[in-house]
Amino acid sequence: MKVNVGKRILSANEEYALKNRQFLTERKILCLNMISSPGSGKTTILVRTINALKNEITIGVIEGDIQTDLDAEKIRATEAPVVQIETKGACHLSAAQVNTALNRLPTDNLDLIIIENVGNLVCPSAFELGETGKIAVLSVAEGDDKPVKYPAIFARSKVLLINKTDLLKVGAAVDFDIERAKADARKLNKGIEIFATSAKTGEGMAGWHNWLKKQVKNLQGA
């Protein structure tokens, strides 16, 4: 006997994502889900961004890692509020975990929440967290073929940060064709905003910061 079911398998996660989205919308908080491979520089980007925008927008952070609160410690040094989620093995954050974390952040005072997902270019992109948008980070050491090899995250992101561009200046160490990576990312996502950055030196970060300020303004001005 065959029975038609037609049920969404991830509905439990989707329900939490919806709750999170409502919570954030009511408070006019922009929420970005930052996804990349491990070691692309997400935390360094966050630290520099928080410090640069300190007097303009208040930022809270949700950190996801398999183990440790090392990243939360780095964020804490900026004095921005941060909640660390240790997934203890899970390769991505779930909307339920983010729901708990949102309740632990001082959301009355925040303009922007950035969720630093577990370092992984595949799994996190399949789980909605209730975010306003996704941010992909690709460091030049990973190679310019990643948008072709791992299309989902580049197809679903509002912004791509091509980070660690300071490595390219060394010359011999890294071959990375920025134009190729940009063109490949845009094949599936014409509207994606792309910024080439070095979170370490600060080069190229202004474009990303201006984009963030504009998004917060658009959300809160409405």
């Binding site: 079911v5 037609g6 969404r8 991830l10 094949k187």
Partner: peptide
């Protein structure tokens, strides 16, 4: 990717199909 009808490479991505349990046989 290109449009099969007019060969343009300019297109918008439509939402990806969700994970669905379609049918169970008992």
């Amino acid at each position: 990717p290109r449009c099969p009808k007019c060969d343009s490479g300019e297109f918008d991505l439509l939402p990806d199909a969700p994970l669905m349990l379609e049918e169970i046989e008992f």
